Computed example of a mutant assay.
Amino acid sequence: MITFYERRTQAHIERVQRNLSLLAEQWECGAELLARAEVHDASKYGPEERVPYIWLTEFHRCRWRKIPFQYPPGMEERVQSAIRHHVTSNRHHPEFHNDPNEMTDIDLIEMVCDWTAMSEEFGQDEGSARGWAERTIGHRVPFNDEKTQFVFAVIEQLDRLRTSDGVGDKEQ
């Protein structure tokens, strides 16, 4: 269970880092994007998140494989607390901000790279963040028109870069 968590989390971080690196070559804020890549999801290894996220990862692994699963007593509450900690401690999550429209371009770019990494992992939408954005923006996250347009422009740019880099053709 621990090994699976560590492998899965590291693979996710590496996908985000690869996506941020692709965009860093295109943006004036490239150095800041690369700095974000170095610390993306580091809180998942901290004391507030590590153990609960191991259990959360196991819950999802079992769900995907249709294996019965039950948290040990008290762990589900710890998992919910760890999720709250994660999204309120990392700028690339809209929940970090009092108003998601306060997110900077760098925050939004990292968020798109995170959503893209999840799409790649789950084999959704040809690895594009477009589906995540369509399911999230205006439903769970009330971005204004400017932020929404920016997010979709970044998604289009990253999708083009991934395809030209051959990433979109590879199994993640």
Results as ranks from 00 to 15, higher is better:
residue 101 N to T: 11
residue 164 S to C: 01
residue 161 L to R: 07
residue 116 T to C: 12
residue 59 F to S: 08
residue 133 A to S: 14
residue 17 Q to W: 11
residue 164 S to N: 08
residue 78 R to T: 00
residue 54 I to K: 02
residue 122 F to S: 12
residue 52 P to A: 07
residue 131 G to D: 13
residue 66 K to Q: 15
residue 61 R to G: 03
residue 111 M to Y: 13
residue 27 W to K: 07
residue 64 W to Y: 10
residue 132 W to V: 03
residue 47 P to N: 01
residue 112 V to K: 06
residue 110 E to F: 08
residue 54 I to T: 06
residue 45 Y to G: 10
residue 68 P to W: 06
residue 115 W to P: 10
residue 51 V to A: 10
residue 105 D to K: 14
residue 100 P to Q: 10
residue 44 K to E: 00
residue 23 L to W: 11
residue 29 C to A: 12
residue 170 K to V: 04
residue 68 P to D: 15
residue 46 G to K: 05
residue 111 M to I: 04
residue 94 P to H: 12
residue 22 L to E: 02
residue 76 E to Q: 12
residue 165 D to R: 11
residue 53 Y to D: 01
residue 93 H to I: 01
residue 73 P to T: 02
residue 61 R to C: 05
residue 23 L to V: 03
residue 52 P to V: 02
residue 136 T to P: 01
residue 109 I to Q: 04
residue 11 A to C: 09
residue 9 T to A: 09
residue 139 H to M: 12
residue 80 Q to F: 05
residue 55 W to V: 00
residue 157 Q to Y: 05
residue 134 E to P: 06
residue 93 H to Q: 05
residue 75 M to L: 10
residue 28 E to N: 15
residue 111 M to C: 13
residue 3 T to A: 13
residue 113 C to M: 10
residue 35 A to M: 05
residue 66 K to W: 03
residue 130 R to L: 08
residue 72 P to R: 08
residue 166 G to D: 07
residue 32 E to C: 03
residue 151 V to Y: 04
residue 124 Q to N: 09
residue 98 N to T: 12
residue 12 H to N: 05
residue 120 E to C: 09
residue 96 F to N: 06
residue 27 W to R: 14
residue 163 T to H: 12
residue 132 W to A: 14
residue 3 T to E: 15
residue 16 V to L: 03
residue 158 L to D: 04
residue 64 W to K: 09
residue 85 H to Q: 07
residue 54 I to N: 01
residue 108 L to G: 01
residue 43 S to M: 07
residue 100 P to I: 09
residue 24 A to T: 07
residue 129 A to N: 07
residue 99 D to N: 15
residue 111 M to H: 15
residue 102 E to D: 15
